[in-house]
Design a binder for these strands. Sequence first.
DNA 1: ACAAAGTATAAACTATGCTCTATGCTTTTA
DNA 2: TAAAAGCATAGAGCATAGTTTATACTTTGT
Lengths: 119, 119
Amino acid sequence: MLINELSKKTGLSIHTIRYYENLGMIKGLADEKVKSNNYKHYNNNTIERLEIIIEAREVGFTLAEIKKILTSWFETTESKPETLELFHAKIKEIDDKMRYFKQTKRLLEKVCEKIQNNE
Amino acid sequence: MLINELSKKTGLSIHTIRYYENLGMIKGLADEKVKSNNYKHYNNNTIERLEIIIEAREVGFTLAEIKKILTSWFETTESKPETLELFHAKIKEIDDKMRYFKQTKRLLEKVCEKIQNNE
DNA sequence: ACAAAGTATAAACTATGCTCTATGCTTTTA
DNA sequence: TAAAAGCATAGAGCATAGTTTATACTTTGT
């Protein structure tokens, strides 16, 4: 599929997709049989990768961090202990953030109560 | 307390605290009895506010959004229905993000398993 | 009393993550 | 076949959230 279709399937703008491609997070390939243009083709793996990017950026990971996640998930053949530790650290980060989430949610709920009681 | 103490108690840099003060998220007051300087004094409410800021920014709320939360929590006297709706929407956002969190955590755990099995 | 440390204000600078514009080529469509 | 739409590349511009620098005044410690 070309970039337009990819954009529609993921909900990301064409600009954003190209931005991610420039960062090396995804990769499209030009059809070698077609010499007249340089149109890049993307496959379902690209969709998977973009969905992971969307998920992980919601969590607040930077694009650099997400790139590492993608590499470890899709490309890594060898297993470095420091990579493993990195991911354990990230999991811990998520757990920490979850706590902030619960606290903030509780605060917001209290704000709602306060607003309603003032009526 | 002065800004240095506030910085130590919250873990935020003096610069960041001033940045938040410029945005109107917190407010220090100069001692009127002292004419020789313009040193601002902060109280425990400021600490509370900064702790809320720290929590909420981890959740990914923008400083503008956090400012609204603070206003509704500490300053609002009247209760506007649209404010209430805003906060309900924010709570929903948090719930949505929690889902992303769980998915991303699961992905990271799988990455860890993958790395370990490759050994 | 004087150097060091603290405070205030303003402005410049930086990093991240886009978003938009310009240019030029290719493909599709009426 | 000419106009419109799509694709690629490069670079400029923008918003957010700080961080750093410069300047100047005040307070504190020795």
